[in-house]
Design a protein around this nucleic acid. Sequence first.
DNA 1: ATCTGCTCCTGGCGGC
DNA 2: TGCCGCCAGGAGCAGA
Length: 338
Amino acid sequence: MPELPEVEVVRAGLEPAVSGALITGVEVFDTRSLKRHSPLEGRFESLLEGRRMLAAVRRGKFLWFPLSAGAAAAPTGEGGAGGAAPATAAASGPQALVAHLGMSGQVLLRTPGTGEEGLLRIRLQIEHPEHGEFWVNFVDQRIFGSMAVDRLVPTADGAAGGYSGFDSGRMLGDTLALVPGQVAHIARDPLDPAFDEATFLAALGRKRTGIKRALLDQTLVSGIGNIYADESLWAARVHYEHPADRLPRARARELLAEVRVVLEKALAEGGTSFDAQYVNVNGASGYFSHSLNAYGQQGKPCPRCGTPIVREAFMNRSSHLCPRCQRPFRARVARVAA
DNA sequence: ATCTGCTCCTGGCGGC
DNA sequence: TGCCGCCAGGAGCAGA
């Protein structure tokens, strides 16, 4: 549920404290939070200690922090049956600390010594040259989120790997047009200046699936989750099961425009929080939940037409829609067929 | 190849 | 009141 706006709130909050900060200590309290970390890369803690984070970058719902070159830690080659443990894996090229919040992850910036109420999985102790010492606490109730150290690879289009704020772009230097290997398959998000609208619309037009499924497909467009998919579809008056390949190009373009409006509005309001689960780096909640028109509004009147919003089962989760504004697609007999 | 649906995980809360 | 079971769902991957 942390979707693009919530993750961006976290990124922006971390940026000033972590950019240029030295990692002085790493504690992993639950190794399940390292499920995206490949042991071939080296030991997570060893890879981080003694290195600096150069910036805070985001693409869609993924966050990463490019690392200074520093001492490449020796890979913990144990368990290497056959002994082909590649010493090159850990030492090759630039790396980044990657974070994904999953469903319930939080990254909290704390004064050293502060206790943590939630389920603390990983703690980084950092020291910023100007701002001093902090604890970066990765809290995650459901452990769908994770942290990892991963190699950075060049972006396919040569553009910046993700959004890193105005100023930290400088600090990124030659790591600017790189993206973590495990994020490379994730599409750019609709707020990314390098987002290719024509390519997206063309790909959408080829998808033989429902439009909401397509919006949630992070390889097509990233950053959208269940909340903002429902909100965007409501705003564009599109039914969630409308076949993606049958949505006229102009309607698809309108939908994309609504996606951007919804994401930007949520971002401006600090993200959506229903409870203490979704918070910024200081633990405070956002206000967008007061602006929801469809998600979670079942039974309440549609703000546009007054018809009660309904909630329907969808992919082991739920969809919220106005049954009057968002009519199901019905294939019609082609009238102007060639 | 493309699409669908299962799985990971735990706390909160609705309902009986 | 107390407890059971449902619910939240991002993303990767297995299987169709």
